[in-house]
Structure formats: C-alpha cells, structure tokens
Design a protein around this nucleic acid. Sequence first.
DNA 1: CTCCAATAGACCGACTGTCTGTCGGTAATA
DNA 2: TATTACCGACAGACAGTCGGTCTATTGGAG
Lengths: 218, 218
Amino acid sequence: MRVVKKAEERKNEILDAADELFAQKGFDGTSTNDILEKVGIARGTLYHHFKSKEDIMDALIDRYNVLLLDGAQDIAKDKSIPVIERIVRVVMALNISNVESGSSKEIMEHIHKPQNALMHQKIQKVIVNGVPPILTEIIREGIEQGLFSTPFPYECMEMVVIYANAVFDGDMVTMTDEERGSRMLAFVCNVERLLGAESGSLMAVMAMFGGGNEGGDE
Amino acid sequence: MRVVKKAEERKNEILDAADELFAQKGFDGTSTNDILEKVGIARGTLYHHFKSKEDIMDALIDRYNVLLLDGAQDIAKDKSIPVIERIVRVVMALNISNVESGSSKEIMEHIHKPQNALMHQKIQKVIVNGVPPILTEIIREGIEQGLFSTPFPYECMEMVVIYANAVFDGDMVTMTDEERGSRMLAFVCNVERLLGAESGSLMAVMAMFGGGNEGGDE
DNA sequence: CTCCAATAGACCGACTGTCTGTCGGTAATA
DNA sequence: TATTACCGACAGACAGTCGGTCTATTGGAG
C-alpha cells in the first residue's frame, strides 16, 4: 500500500523510529530493516531520504543538539537572573530530563550504552564545543562582578564540561551512589578553585536546586 | 599449505596484523578477511583463537594497556625522583611516542580516527580508571611534603586525566597550534590551582622537559 | 476557467556484494 | 590415541543500489 507524504514529514517519521530503536538496541544493533518495518516503508524510500544509515544518526544528533543548545542559550542570555544561579540553571537545562518528550524523546538513553560508541562520541563533540562558549559568557559577567577570578574562563569551562560529561553522564567511570556523592562534592569544590570563587559560594546555590538533580552536564 | 604453530605465537601474529590494519583502516573498515589474508590463515583458524572480531580488539587493547600502565607504575614507584618531576615523567611515559615500536607499534594512531569510536572509548575507559590511582599516590606524597594542598587528590587527578586525554590526545577539540599552546598554559595554571600548588611550581618543571612533548595524558 | 500532459519527486522491492561467525572434518603433535 | 591447531565451504544477515511505478503539481492549450 502506497502512501505519499511530504519529504519532511517522512524524514521525521524515520528519525522518530530510529530514535526509539537506537535507544532500545543501539546503532549497530538496529538494522535498516528494523527501521523500515517500524515506519512501514520500503528500502528504497529510506535511501531516498537519507544517503546512509550513519546519515540518519547525524540527522538525529542535529535535531537533538538544536533543541539542547538553543534552550541553554535562552537561559544564558537572561541577565535578570543572578550569575551563579544562572549557571546552575543552564547546567540543569542541559540535562535531558528537562527536555519535554516532544520529538527526541529518549535520545539520551542511548548515548550511554557502550554499543553506541559512535553516537556517544559525536554528541560529546558537539557538547564539548557548544556548551563552554555559552558558559564562558556567564563567567565573564561573574568576573566583572568580582565573583570569580581567572585568566582562563574558557579553558576552565572546557575542563568542567568535559569532566562532568565523562563522569556524571557517561559510563566512563562506574560508581556507587556514595562515590557519586563524594565526587559531586569534590567537583563543586574544584570548580570553585578553578574559578577563583569564594569557597562555598557555588555549593550554596547548588544546594538550593539540589533535590534529584545531579549537576551533570549534557 | 598447512603450518602449525603454538597458540600464543599465532595469537600474536593475528594481533600484530590486526594492529596494523586497524591503524590503517579502522576497526569497522577492516574485515576479518583482511586479517586472514595478512596473516595467511583460514577463517576457522582465526575463530579458533578468538571468539569474535571484537575479541581481537579487546586483546589488542589489553596488550597495549599492560605495556602502558606498567611502564607508568615503574616510574611512579621510584621515590628517588622528586615529586613534581616524577609526575611529569609519568605523564610523558603515558605518551605513546615513548613506547618503542615493539609489539603494539602503531596502536595510538587509530584511536584518534573517528572511525574507531569503540576502540577509542575502550582505551579511554582503561586510562581514566587506571591512570588516576597511579598519579594520586604521587600527589599524596606531594601533600605530605607541603607541595600541594587538596582534600580531593583522586578527584583532581581524575579531572586532569580526563581533560588532558580529551583535549590534547583526542580529536574532541580541533585547535590551531596557537590555541593548543594557550590551552597548555591554561591547563598547567588550572592544575596548580586544583592541587593548591604554588603558582608556577608546575610550570617550572614542565619547562625543563619542554621540547616537543606536549603533556597530553594517555 | 478547465483539462490534460509533462515533469518532479516520493515510493517500491528484488537484488548484489560483503561480512561475520559456524561446523564438520583433516593434519600434526605429544 | 588424544589433543590441539588448522582448514574452507557455508549460512544468515545486512547495507546500499537500481530500474521502475505511482502521485501530485504545474503550466499551457483550448
């Protein structure tokens, strides 16, 4: 049975299906046939819209990153929020949990699975290059206000983002809940040192938001 | 033509071939047939020694990591070397360039290629879990000697290793030589802050070793 | 304004080549 | 004789291709 749709609509159908399947079975574990079946289209149709299986993954990552980085930017630009609180908010926005289950519902679940090394790497790359600039701007404000003091705001943020991403979001390090907690503490203290912030100044604000959230990064 | 060899010898032949091929064409880009051909054995032989293609990669990584971490350990244990110098030496030992082209000649060239995401990830994992403990021991000595001051030596090292690994060795961030230089400078200063070391104390020792070496980590 | 033909592009599914892993059997070694 | 290294044909799965079909749109003739 032949159903014709607009290219963009079809593309999104394919991406939605791939999104879910990759989440369940990983990129390598998902065959193009799986996607075909789920969408209900023929092989040729898929390759009419995407030039390869990897092309699908790239499009998926794009779709997700726009959502993520734009959201973070919006908060970062809102100068009515105090600097430190804004940092915490941006970091929270970068956590998937907040992304309402619109189009890229479960994307975050896959990237941790060891199966999806390539996707993981690609998303990491975008985060590592996209997030620090956003945060650096806020840090600069903080420096002007005398909250922070560092000659290397960008490099600090790069370090913070890479570390948080690897440890708190990735599966690089396996931790018990206890280890996780102590690492969070150490992390906050270390960030204070890097930024030349007053000891405890970050900790205080973080505690306000505390609750379930972790302070990971992506 | 049938040639019989000891299992271990054959295994190493296979690993050597895989080593070289993965370096050239990546893991996914290398077929088992390529390996078969290069070693000059039949399919069955390969699967007699290794249970899967991925198993070959794991063995390759193992072989490499033993070389790497043991070398670093040896230096770390040599208490006749001053603490800061020893740190620099350990870091240098972790740079591939030093691994004489014995068995795992070119292993390092692949892990950067985007193709080899899985291998990259696996090696990273070993480094991130294996290197910080080694360095932490030295830091503890440094603390006793009053050189450093931090309540979180392990977490500091974890951060340092993860960052250096991602930025200086990986292809996570693309930099010009100039950016690279400024990042090195910022990195050293940041590490001094993290460790609570006197400003410039690390820089001084690093400069001694300077030359071509970069101070990356793995 | 209507109708029809031509064009673009969405869609189909059989097919190809390649790849990984298996299995029954054979030669060498201890 | 028993074990272990080795062989190569084979099965099953998968990514990507290709010739061709169907549908919607558009623009020109009537």
